[in-house]
């Protein structure tokens, strides 16, 4: 979806302001938010692409008015609500109303193994790669209403295939519960002038990870 999360190239957000000696968390609630989000993935059984979609799928005003972990909170509420684990009414009232679902729970002794395993996305597929390093490709013009990982600022632009990464889970499908549908994954390099015209820096290139179906050949 073309939401406020797709920020590449947007102007007016001001200076980047690094914080000296930044702590890992800014307050107890952020600490809890990280833990709750990671812990609830076990009973919730959602995947990373569903999580990302739940975070970005909100009005631009809502997205931009939330801090980072507030976006996580909004995303987690959506995911739990969709699965009948926790209704918004329960959270608003601070009281359990729905019956408990029979779902697995993350145990402390499983935490280390879960984090070490992570969520690798590489898969074996039988289809050979459509492109090789050095090929010219165009990022398709598209405007899907659901999750995608092709940012607006590269759509319609021509770049060069820079790296091949094997086949990876396709987020557009996986986020919507339509299966992993793995595709070849490439890194495609675009010149600054190709993306931004005369306002671009000729000595800048921007490389993006792009799945096969985001791309079309350019002769």
């Amino acid at each position: 979806m073309d939401g406020a999360h797709d920020m590449g190239g947007t102007q007016g957000f001001g200076k980047v302001e690094p914080e000296v000696n930044e702590p890992v968390f800014h307050g107890e609630w952020e600490r809890r938010m990280l833990g709750l989000t990671l812990a609830m993935a076990r009973p919730g059984q959602w995947n990373i692409d569903m999580s990302r979609y739940a975070r970005e799928n909100r009005s631009p005003r809502d997205y931009l008015n939330r801090s980072y972990y507030e976006v996580w909170l909004g995303g987690l509420e959506t995911l739990m609500h969709e699965r009948g684990l926790l209704s918004r009414e329960e959270l608003d009232g601070g009281k359990a109303l729905l019956p408990r679902k029979d779902v697995p729970v993350l145990k402390p002794e499983d935490v280390d193994a879960m984090l070490r395993r992570g969520g690798p996305t590489e898969r074996k597929i039988d289809v050979p790669a459509r492109f090789k390093v050095g090929d010219r490709v165009r990022a398709k013009v598209m405007a899907p209403t659901t999750h995608t990982r092709l940012p607006r600022y590269v759509r319609g632009h021509v770049g060069i295939v820079e790296l091949l990464h094997g086949a990876h889970v396709f987020p557009d499908s996986n986020a919507m519960g339509r299966g992993e549908a793995p595709q070849w994954l490439y890194t495609v390099r675009f010149d600054g002038r190709e993306l931004w015209g005369d306002d671009g820096d000729p000595d800048v290139t921007v490389s993006v990870d792009a799945w096969d179906s985001y791309l079309e050949p350019v002769s």
């Binding site: 812990a39 684990l85 408990r100 729970v105 993350l106 402390p108």
Partner: peptide
């Protein structure tokens, strides 16, 4: 749904 000890561990 959440084991507090797992939360602390995370």
């Amino acid at each position: 749904y959440v084991d507090p000890a797992a939360l602390d561990e995370l």
